[in-house]
Amino acid sequence: MNKRKGTFGTAALNTPFVVWSAIFIIVPLIFVIYYSFFDQDSGVFTLDHVKYFFGNPSVLKSFGQSVWLSVASTLISLLIAYPFAYFLSKKRPASQRVQMVLVMAPMWMNMVVRTYSWATILEKNGLLNNILESMGLGKINIIGTSGAVILGMVYNYLPYMILPIYTSMSKIGTPLLEAAEDLGCNSFQKLTRVIMPLSLSGVVSGIIMVFVPSISTFYISQAMSDRKILLIGDIIESQITGMWSTGGLNRGAAMSFVLMVIILICTFIMNKYADSDEGGMMI
């Protein structure tokens, strides 16, 4: 990366961003850390709230469930997104643009609305079951299963997996692919020896961009499981929304803090695998 001396112009352009980050990122972060370690009422330093995360079986169970559901949906997203991005990057530029717009189109709608639509389709008396019943196949229960939550996560976050992988693939460029062919690669060898290693940074970005929101989501699990599956995000949410009950805000902040540290560690490890020269750093 270029290091340039900041001129007045670049400083002026930077300022709004710096102010924005300070007010909406740094300050809230300080609050989170403060409430994690200092009691809401007495202001005394304590590790009780952090211990609550590790000492409470129901919290740990939710955390475990969050990990497995988000890992599963990240893997499924990857399995869908990678071949999609690969075939897309081989298409003609015009059709690539159209298809990328289609990938992004659902993101123009609010996530809550989209998730609710899925819930309505899949619920006990929803569209899917009506169709099944009219065909004489009987109802199936989807809402409330892990599968429904994974579906919600994959559906919502898939574009975040496709975008970075597609970008890193289209950056590879024809000359390198032709060079590989010229040196004896068939299509499969071209994929394994050139495309896969050169799109690894996109894969890492995609994994992080799907895994992080999945592990901390509370909304998708509520809509898709009818509140039967409680994720760590749901517990944090219920602690904080009930924050005037004693210590709720503290416990919510402490859980957020622990979750954040765990995510940061995961991200750091993932980035180790990506070639940092390729600009794939994502936090």
């Binding site: 000359p175 390198l176 040196l183």
Partner: peptide, 20 residues
Amino acid sequence: LPPHKRNVNTIFQRYALFPH
């Protein structure tokens, strides 16, 4: 005959070395 089966190699205009 596809390029990878031809006993011909190319030096490309901008070299096209593999960055990884």
